[in-house]
């Protein structure tokens, strides 16, 4: 895997969300991702950023353009120092939520992107990494 570009953005307030979404769109457009795949990626990013603001009072996002086996894609890493998730398996189940949302957050987000991984230590924080390839496969 080759890293083409790298950038990081702090997300501390709700006002940071729109510029962040635009930044993701810029990256996706740069590698020629189709509109549907762009929309999926940005929506997934939007869900994760909201989680970060809601549960951990913000955090930071690493934005990367990567290439693997001749495929290019966008990789986003969301890092926070929030309370963490106790039971990740449970959090990844459809319909589960501790907040007052629809509970589509994590599993729904996972369905939108090609690769999804989550690491969390209770009391220390959560890191979610998503990757979406140019052609969505």
């Amino acid at each position: 895997m080759i890293q083409i570009s790298k950038d990081s953005m702090p997300i501390l307030r709700e006002q940071d969300v729109v510029p962040f979404r635009n930044r993701v769109r810029e990256l996706a457009t740069k590698i020629g991702m189709s509109l549907v795949n762009q929309t999926k990626l940005i929506t997934a990013a939007s869900e994760l950023v909201r989680n970060m603001l809601k549960y951990a009072n913000g955090g930071k996002v690493l934005l990367e353009l990567i290439s693997r086996n001749g495929q290019t894609g966008v990789r986003l890493t969301f890092e926070d120092q929030g309370p963490g998730i106790k039971d990740i398996d449970l959090a990844m189940k459809d319909g589960f939520s501790t907040g007052k949302s629809l509970g589509l957050g994590l599993p729904g987000t996972k369905r939108l992107v090609n690769e999804f991984s989550i690491k969390s230590v209770p009391g220390e924080g959560t890191t979610v990494t998503i990757t979406h390839w140019k052609n969505g496969r």
Partner: peptide
């Protein structure tokens, strides 16, 4: 609603 938005919402489960 734009097609891309509709497809994304369905995938999201909404």
């Amino acid at each position: 609603m734009q097609p891309a938005v509709a497809i994304t919402l369905v995938e999201l489960g909404l």
